[in-house]
């Protein structure tokens, strides 16, 4: 049987994700970067007690709708944009490891509400240390020392050691059970290329879990992706699912 990592549906691709899993959620801050269909499939599956990592904890359904309607900024929010905040809002998340758990002004996102109620746990970490902890997991590095964070809240309780006269804090790799990421094109081996700034945490999280699932715009024939330009190599990716040609307008619709 030829290798084929392409799954027919998002629901099938996440069907074996279990309660209590740690999940790296790709994306950064705008719609084009998020694996919206995989997030929606996890919401439909009802899996709970999750630990999520990512840049931002995300928005509630109502907040996203308001932002779509208000057309804030000049970047349009497509109707099929689903934020990781949906999983938080639905009570599926027990812990978040985030650089942006809350907005420093303005809206109260679902994670902030639940944090204030004592219903979720937070591990606050700067973006660079978060990205490197994830990269380290892919690369088989157990932990590393970084100068960033020494003397601040993110270093509390962590080992500090001097190198070249500068204090560094020990940060541990974050190996997840599952990474869900968004890419542009894939082939059936799981090679990936990204589109512009949607590379961000998506390429970082590929391979930093036992199971990496990529949501892509298109699957192309093997050999069509230029080997000089492939960003994520096949071994890091176990499953690929193609976004539908017709945009889904509700996360509740099986897909």
């Amino acid at each position: 049987m030829p290798v084929n990592k392409v799954f027919d549906t998002f629901d099938a691709a996440v069907a074996d994700v279990v309660d209590g899993s740690m999940i790296h959620v790709g994306g950064f801050g705008t719609a084009a970067e998020y694996p919206s269909y995989l997030i929606a499939a996890l919401a439909r599956s009802g899996v709970s007690g999750l630990t999520l990592t990512g840049n931002h904890s995300g928005f509630s359904e109502d907040q996203l709708k308001m932002m779509k309607d208000a057309n804030l900024g000049i970047i349009k929010y497509p109707d099929d944009y689903v934020s990781p905040g949906l999983l938080v809002q639905r009570g599926q998340v027990a812990k978040g490891i985030y650089a942006f758990p809350v907005l420093n002004r303005g809206l109260e996102v679902p994670f902030e509400t639940l944090l204030n109620e004592g219903k979720v746990e937070l591990e606050l970490i700067g973006q660079g240390s978060l990205a490197e902890r994830i990269r380290a997991a892919r690369a088989g590095i157990a932990a590393f020392y970084t100068p960033v964070g020494v003397g601040t809240v993110v270093a509390e309780g962590k080992e500090v050691r001097d190198f070249d006269g500068r204090p560094h804090v020990l940060e541990h790799a974050l190996k997840a059970d599952v990474s869900i990421i968004r890419a542009h094109k894939a082939d059936r081996y799981g090679n990936l290329v990204y589109k512009g700034t949607a590379r961000t945490f998506n390429a970082t999280m590929a391979g930093a879990a036992h199971l990496t699932i990529a949501e892509v715009d298109e699957v192309v024939e093997l050999g069509e992706l230029d080997p000089e330009c492939i960003v994520t190599a096949a071994p890091y990716v176990q499953r690929v699912v193609v976004r539908p040609a017709t945009m889904s307008t509700s996360w509740e619709t099986p897909c």
Partner: peptide
């Protein structure tokens, strides 16, 4: 809590 983001690095 606050959001430390990328400013710290």
């Amino acid at each position: 809590v606050g959001s430390i983001g990328g400013a710290q690095d």
